[in-house]
Nucleic acid binder design. Structure first.
Lengths: 211, 211
DNA sequence: ATACAATCTTGACAGTGGATAGATACCCGG
DNA sequence: CCGGGTATCTATCCACTGTCAAGATTGTAT
C-alpha cells in the first residue's frame, strides 16, 4: 500500500468515531510512550493500541507486525538523534574540535533523554535492521559523524587515519552514552549534574583531540 | 533455600529418570545456548526447560522466575568477562599500557564471542541489576578496570584524574565492543580479521595512552 | 447512487511466563 | 529393611501476548 491519501486529519476528539483518521502517526507516538514507560522488553503491541484508543488489531493495517512498528520507530529515532547533536553544535564554538565534542554531547543527551529508544536503535534485535529506511537513517547519522571528525582533524583524511579516528570518536561517545544509560559509570553519575556535563566534555575533548 | 546438598551428581544419561540430578548447572548451560541461538528477545523459559529435557515448570525450583535465571547467567558472564581480559593480558607485554590495551582487547573478544550474553549483562532490563551477586560480579570487573588504568598511568591517581581516565578507558572499550556486536563500525568490520585486530589495538593504544 | 477500497472491530488461536496442586524419587532415622 | 519427610519434577490452569480471519463501517470513485 504505497499511496495512502491522508484522510483529512480528523480535527480531534470525537469520542467515538469508527475511523481514527490518522492512526499511523498516532501509533508511533503511542509506541514511543509505551517504550519509554515499559522499556523495550515490556513493549506490547496491544498496549500501544490501547494507548491510541483503538482495537488491538488495528495496528496491523499500518505496520505489518510489531517488528514493523519498532523499525519505523527506530528510524524516526535516528532523525531526532542527529537533531540532538545539531542542537548542541549550534550552541558551541565553531572550531572543528568543539563541534565534534558538541556532537558527542548531543549523542549523550539523546541517549539519556530517550534511553529505551536509544537501545532500540543500537542494541536490540527486535527492529529489522535490514529495512531500507532504517538503514538510510542510520547511515545518514553515520555520515554526519565522519564529517564532524574530518572537520576536527583535516589532516586525517590525507594521512589515511580517518577511519580509525572516526571509529575512536564513535566508540567513545557511544560507550559513554551506553554506560550512562545502563547506570554504570558511577564515577561520573554520582556527581552533580553540572559537574557531569563538564566532566563528559573534558573526556570527549581529550579523547577526540588530534595528535 | 541457601544450602542445597548436591544430590550425588547423577552419573549421566539415564534416558528417563524422574530426578535430573543436578538441574541447576544444566539449566544455566541450557540458558546460555538458548540465549546464543534465539537472542535475548527470543529467550524463552520453556525453551530452556526443553533443552534441559525437563518440564517447563521445573526451573522454578532453582530460579524464582525467568528474571532470576537471567540474573544468574549475567553474573556468571561477568566472571568469564574478566577471564577473557586476563587471557589477553597473559599474552601481552608487561608494561602498564600494554596490559590495559590487552584488557580492552579481551573486553572486545568476550563481546564478540558471546554477543547475546554481553547485551544481557550491559544493556538489558531483564536481569535484576539490583541483585547482590550480580552487583558483586559487576563491581569486581569494574575494580579490575580501575586497577589496570592505574597501572597504565601511575600519575593519574595523584593528579586526581583517575576517575576520568577510567571512564575514558571503559567507554572506549565498551563502545567498540557494543558497536562491533551491533554490526556497526563498518569501517573496521569490512577489513580482514587480522587487520581488525591490529586496528583495534591501535585505536585502544592511542586512546588510552597517558598525555 | 452504487461499487469498491481502505480502515477499524470482533473473535479466535497458539505460544509465553507464572502459580498451584499432585506425583515421584531420594535421604535419614528407626 | 522400611516408613516418613523433603526436595524435585510433572500436570494443569490463568492472564497475557502477537497474529490471523471474518465482519462492520466509512470514504472515494465511477
Amino acid at each position: 500500500m504505497p499511496s495512502r491519501p491522508p484522510p483529512r486529519a480528523k480535527a480531534s476528539r470525537q469520542p467515538k468515531s469508527y475511523h481514527h483518521g490518522n492512526l499511523r502517526p498516532a501509533l508511533l507516538a503511542a509506541a514511543e510512550r509505551e517504550l519509554a514507560e515499559h522499556g523495550i522488553e515490556g513493549f506490547s503491541l496491544r498496549g500501544v493500541a490501547k494507548r491510541a484508543g483503538v482495537s488491538h488489531a488495528a495496528p496491523a493495517h499500518h505496520f505489518a507486525d510489531a517488528t514493523g512498528l519498532l523499525t519505523a520507530l527506530a528510524a524516526l529515532g535516528f532523525e531526532r538523534f542527529v537533531a540532538a547533536q545539531k542542537a548542541r553544535q549550534t550552541k558551541a564554538a565553531t572550531d572543528g574540535l568543539s563541534q565534534l565534542v558538541a556532537a558527542g554531547l548531543g549523542y549523550i543527551d539523546f541517549a539519556r533523554a530517550h534511553p529505551a529508544l536509544f537501545r532500540l536503535m543500537f542494541s536490540s534485535d527486535r527492529p529489522d535492521h535490514g529495512d531500507r529506511t532504517l538503514c538510510a537513517s542510520a547511515e545518514a547519522a553515520m555520515a554526519k559523524l565522519v564529517d564532524d571528525v574530518r572537520g576536527a582533524d583535516p589532516q586525517a583524511d590525507a594521512a589515511g587515519t580517518l577511519a580509525d579516528r572516526a571509529a575512536t570518536a564513535w566508540a567513545l561517545a557511544h560507550g559513554l552514552a551506553d554506560l550512562l544509560v545502563a547506570g554504570r559509570l558511577k564515577m561520573v553519575l554520582k556527581r552533580p549534574a553540572a559537574e557531569q556535563q563538564s566532566s563528559l566534555a573534558a573526556i570527549l575533548r581529550q579523547g577526540l583531540a588530534p595528535r
